[in-house]
Amino acid sequence: MDLELREIILLSLRVSGVALLISSLIGIPLGAYLGLKRFVGRRFVVALMYTGMGFPPVVIGLFVYLLLSRSGLLGSLQLPFLPSLFTPGAMIIAQTIISFPLVAGFTMAAVMGVDPHLRQQVLALGATHRQAALAVLMEARVGVIVAIIAGFGGIISEVGAVMMVGGNIEGRTRVLTTAIVLETRKGNFELAIALGLVLLGITFIANLAMLRLQGKSFDE
């Protein structure tokens, strides 16, 4: 395989993989909490989350751009742990913002689909509230995996935000989607199609792996 293509594939996987990991670490507990708890302002938080699920990636890209640019709200602070614009770190931030509402929203729906009596009966067996929440999440595992798949689907194929905050710099921030845009503009349709097929293949393999995670419960 061409070295440049390999770099592009690896960077796509790294950026979307890390973003998905962070999204899952935030989104699954948040979705479980919203699905299980009743509190004042829950409707408002859920409405915000639903809005996040449908937010155009390019607008999120713009938002992150404005935050991280040298004159931006965060960029001007020059905090050591914050990535600069046109780096994979900036792309990860943008993709995390895109995918975590998807992971949280679908997780919430999956958790709400579990009969509430189950949680009560698990508590009656002596579970702590945390143990009961985990038991409910385990029961909702098919839906939670769908949540992760939706989060992954939302970012691996996304182009607007990574283009805006990554800049499509060769060897540094070029990923599969931005490379496809570039090659199409240059008229290299064969290469663009080949990159598109690689992207499709990666998505297919990733989803197959997720299905394996759903395990036997998917077939029941």
Binding site: L118, Q121, A124, L125, G126, A135, M138, E139, S217
Partner: peptide
């Protein structure tokens, strides 16, 4: 103390 008590409910919800 909570774990000294448990309930069998009318409609048992078993884990899958």
């Amino acid at each position: 103390l909570r774990r000294r008590v448990t309930t069998v409910f009318q409609r048992p919800m078993l884990l899958s």
